[in-house]
């Protein structure tokens, strides 16, 4: 009886275990091994930290790295600023059918692939695109304007592609805020800003964090949006990794870059949780 139960447990666990081992643990172990292999001669590798040293020696690498991390934080903040009013409106001011429709409207763009959505932005923002033509026809600008291939275009694309991942946890956590709590905030003499700062935002902290973590990680690891909207100037770190693996065929350096990105994202998420005194369990497990 006991051994049968144990067998059943293992059988039930096996898909998850296989998934974890084959797709997460093994590749990462391999990446660590690769990253720690220094090329001494063609086809001859030895253990060493040379690949990481290479990263710090070449300014382009760590500039790109720093820029990607900072830009991802900015994009996360921008996503939050756009998503919060939306989520508040859906969670607190809408009721019934309209609420579900608004929620679906947020979800709808995600039925289309990220590539297609990004191409949509290109249609809007390129020199001969919709926005440029409109401004020219209205006589606001004298000539055509190129809106693509700059940081603002990347930011717009990143915020757009992350919005849903911020709106959903925010709506979920704002939904659990009792309306009478907000009313009590006003009743006791608070104005709208007081209620927002003292009651609504503190209540939504777990939702804000879980949304921010997801958006930050997705942005940091995004490849399509920065490459297509930022062009050659995007300087996104995932592009460097791609270059090492595909163009340069230097898997060792590429792996080192991958590990650095993983360490950076984990470190920042950890710091964010520490600063807000939340645990990963309460933030993600809700």
């Amino acid at each position: 009886m006991r051994s049968e139960g144990r067998l059943a447990l293992w059988l039930l666990l096996s898909p998850a275990l296989l998934w974890l081992t084959l797709l997460i643990v093994l590749p990462h172990v391999d990446m660590v091994i690769l990253a720690l292999s220094e090329r001494v001669r063609p086809r001859v590798y030895e253990f060493g930290f040379g690949n990481f040293a290479e990263f710090f020696k070449e300014p382009l690498y760590w500039h790109t790295f720093g820029r990607t991390v900072a830009f991802s934080l900015l994009a996360t903040l921008a996503t939050f600023l756009v998503a919060f009013p939306t989520a508040y409106y859906i969670a607190k001011l809408m009721r019934g059918r309209a609420k579900s429709l608004a929620f679906i409207a947020c979800l709808l763009p995600f039925w289309v692939s990220e590539l297609v959505r990004t191409l949509g932005w290109i249609i809007l923002l390129r020199e001969t695109g919709v926005v440029s033509t409109l401004l020219l026809d209205l006589g606001i600008t004298g000539g055509r304007v190129e809106f693509l291939y700059n940081d603002a275009a990347i930011l717009v694309g990143l915020v757009y592609s992350s919005l849903l991942f911020m709106v959903v946890p925010l709506v979920t956590s704002l939904d659990t805020l009792d309306d009478s709590m907000i009313e009590a905030g006003y009743d006791l003499g608070g104005n709208g800003f007081d209620v927002l700062r003292e009651i609504v935002v503190p209540h939504a902290v777990p939702g804000i964090l879980s949304g921010s973590i997801v958006v930050f990680m997705l942005t940091l690891g995004n490849y399509v949006t920065p490459t297509l909207l930022g062009g050659k100037n995007s300087l996104w770190f995932t592009e460097q990794i791609y270059n090492q693996f595909i163009t340069r065929f230097n898997w060792q350096l590429g792996s080192a870059f991958g590990i650095l990105l993983l360490v950076a994202s984990s470190g920042i998420v950890w710091a964010g949780l520490k600063l807000s005194r939340q645990s990963l369990g309460t933030v993600i497990g809700r």
Partner: peptide, 14 residues
């Protein structure tokens, strides 16, 4: 005027 709510509406984060 101040109101005591049915479920009191104490602020749990404070």
């Amino acid at each position: 005027v101040s109101m005591i709510f049915q479920h009191l509406a104490l602020f749990p984060m404070m």
